[in-house]
């Protein structure tokens, strides 16, 4: 169902990985850092087009430069996740979080 969890990074995305970016969908509770890029691509198949998904993510505050911390995850398939985003908390599924690239920071 949630093919994005732990999915191997496709070759085209290695460049991004080399910059130390990971998909938010791969983060675990406790992981925190800064959102580096919101880039809807075809990583997962959605009922809305990629530009619409990108705008929705942006409207919920998933925007470059925002600080985040993954707080919780669901029992089944570790999905969905609850993310603290600056001052607010947002829940989303990992498949949607795959379009958010983040830079993880070491534990404080």
């Amino acid at each position: 169902m949630h093919e994005t969890v732990g999915a191997p990074v496709a070759p085209a995305e290695v460049g991004a990985s080399a910059e130390g970016l990971v998909r938010l969908s791969q983060a675990r509770p406790g992981d925190h850092g800064v959102i580096a890029e919101v880039r809807a691509d075809h990583a997962t198949e959605h009922a809305v087009d990629v530009h619409e998904l990108e705008r929705r993510l942006l409207e919920f505050g998933f925007v470059e430069g925002a600080a985040f911390e993954v707080l919780h995850q669901g029992l089944f398939g570790a999905d969905p996740i609850a993310v603290k985003l600056d001052d607010m908390r947002v829940a989303l599924r990992r498949r949607d979080a795959a379009d958010v690239w983040v830079r993880l920071e070491a534990d404080r």
């Binding site: 198949e45 998904l53 607010m88 908390r89 947002v90 829940a91 498949r95």
Partner: peptide, 15 residues
Amino acid sequence: FWRGAVEPFLMELPT
């Protein structure tokens, strides 16, 4: 009817 398409799920968790 939907042939398995899944919509995004984004939701604020209010204080």
